[in-house]
Design a protein around this nucleic acid. Structure first.
Lengths: 241, 241
DNA sequence: GCAAAAGTGTTCACATTACACCCATGG
DNA sequence: CCATGGGTGTAATGTGAACACTTTTGC
C-alpha cells in the first residue's frame, strides 16, 4: 500500500478548482426549554415535501462570511429573539445521505433558554415547544442529533452549573430539583439534593418566598454567577470509569 | 425585526444552485502516542508555503462519497497503516480565515495508538512524533485544535478507560501510572493509584514479569475489555460542579 | 382540618487521602 | 552493597445514600 497524495489537494490547488470537494455546511440548533415540569425542545415543521409531516430542528446554511458559531447564534436569534444565551457546539454530522438535496454537513449546537424570557419569532411553520420524551421521529437525521444533544445535556449538567439557564432568575429548590429530575429521568432524594446544592455555595438566598402556590411556599434563590467564576479554576483529578 | 427566509434556502433549491454556500470540508486527526514517558502527537511538515517551517496535523479533504468518520479513518490508515484503533470526533472548527486557500471547515478527531504497534507510512514531509508539551506553534489553527483535543483527552481518560489504547497489550502498573501522569500533568500517589486500579477490576494479572529492567521487575497486566463491556451499562447520577 | 409540599439531621457504608518501610533485581 | 523502583496497610477524613417527622400555607 502506497497511499500517495490524492488527486485533489487543498495544499496545491485553490479551492475553486475543486468543485467536487465542496459541500454545503449547515448548523442545527437544539434549543432546550423547561415548561410544565418537562424538558422541551423548540421544533418547526419541515418544509421539505420529503418530510412533510415531520418535525425539524432549527437550522440554516452557514453563510460564506460567517463563522460556524456565528451562524448558530444567528439561527437562535432569528427564531427566539434572544441574545447572550447559552449555546455550545456538540457534534458534527456528515453522513452521505442525511439531506435529500445533496451533501450537507451539519454542526449541531445545543442551547438552554428560559422559555418565559422570550417571545417566539417567526410563528410560521408551527414553531413549537415539544416535550423531548414524546418525540419519536423527526425529519432528516434530526432525531439522532436530538438524542446526542440530550445525552450531552445530561452529562454536562452534572459537570457544570449550566442548568440555571433553563430557569427564571428566581427559583425554588423544588423547581431546580424537578428540572434535574426531568433532564436526567431519575428521582433524587430531596434532603440530599438540598444539602448538595447548599454545599456548592452557588445559590444566593433571596429572602423571598414563592407566591400563589397551594401549599407552603418555598424560599427563592438565584444562581451566584460571580461565586462560580471564582471557584471554577480548581483543577480536578480523579479516575472514575 | 422580521427575520424571514434567507435568499438561498436549502429547502427550496437544489444545492447546485447555491455555489456561494459551498465550502471545503476537511478532517484533521490528532494522533496521540506515548513514548519515553511523554505524550506525543504525530505531525507532518506543512507543504503550504505560508507555513513552510510549521508543523501540521494529519488531515485531508473529505471526499464527496465519504462520511466524515470514514475520512478520518482513511487519513489515519494512510499515515499509520493501522486499522481498528480508537478514533473519536472532538470538535469542528469553522473560523473564516483558518485556511489560506479559502473557506475550509474542519472536523477534528483524536486517536490513541500504541506507538510500537505500527510503522509510520509515507515518510515524506518529515512525519514525526512530537512531545505535546514542546509544541509552541503550528500551521493554520492547528495549535488550537491540538489544545482542544489534549483537554478532551485529559477529561476522557478520567471517565472511560481509553488510556489503554496508548500502551502495549502487556504493561506494568508503573507504565500505566506514568502515562496518567504524563497526560494529566500531575503526580499521583503510587499506593492509592494501585488500589484504585485494582478496585476497578479491569486489569488481568498475567503472572508475568517485566524483563531487562535495572531494578526489581514489576508484574505485567492486561486490560480486561470483556469485564469493562459488562460493567459499562451502569448509570450514574451525581452532581459535581 | 386536610392536602400538599417545605424544611430539617443522623447514621452507615464507602471512597479518598496521606503516609513509610521492606523487597527484589541488575550492575 | 548500592541504586532503583516494586510491593504493601492503616488511620483519618470526606462523601453519598438512606431514611421520617414537623411546619406552613391555601382551600
Amino acid at each position: 500500500m502506497t497511499p500517495a497524495r490524492k488527486k485533489p489537494n487543498i495544499n496545491t490547488s485553490p479551492l475553486e478548482l475543486m468543485p467536487d470537494f465542496q459541500f454545503a455546511v449547515s448548523v442545527d440548533c437544539v434549543i432546550f426549554g423547561y415548561e410544565n415540569d418537562m424538558l422541551k425542545v423548540l421544533l418547526i415543521k419541515s418544509d421539505l415535501p420529503e418530510f412533510k409531516s415531520k418535525w425539524s430542528l432549527l437550522g440554516d446554511l452557514v453563510h460564506p462570511d460567517e463563522d460556524l458559531d456565528a451562524a448558530s447564534y444567528r439561527v437562535l436569534r432569528e427564531r427566539t429573539g434572544l441574545e447572550d444565551v447559552f449555546l455550545e457546539q456538540v457534534h458534527t454530522f456528515g453522513q452521505l445521505n442525511r439531506h435529500p438535496a445533496g451533501r450537507v454537513v451539519t454542526t449541531a449546537y445545543f442551547s438552554l433558554i428560559n422559555v418565559k424570557d422570550h417571545q417566539l419569532k417567526q410563528l410560521d411553520n408551527e414553531l413549537h415547544w415539544h416535550p423531548v420524551n414524546d418525540i419519536k421521529t423527526m425529519a432528516f437525521d434530526h432525531k439522532v442529533i436530538l438524542d446526542t444533544c440530550h445525552k450531552t445535556l445530561q452529562k454536562k449538567i452534572q459537570e457544570e452549573p449550566i442548568i440555571f439557564n433553563l430557569l427564571e432568575k428566581k427559583f425554588s429548590l423544588r423547581d431546580l430539583q424537578n428540572l434535574y429530575e426531568a433532564i436526567l429521568g431519575v428521582s433524587l432524594d430531596r434532603r440530599n439534593f438540598r444539602k448538595k446544592l447548599f454545599t456548592t455555595d452557588l445559590l444566593t438566598d433571596l429572602d423571598e418566598m414563592e407566591k400563589d402556590v397551594p401549599h407552603r411556599p418555598g424560599k427563592l434563590y438565584t444562581f451566584n454567577h460571580a461565586r462560580y467564576a471564582k471557584m471554577k479554576k480548581k483543577t480536578f483529578v480523579g479516575i472514575d470509569f
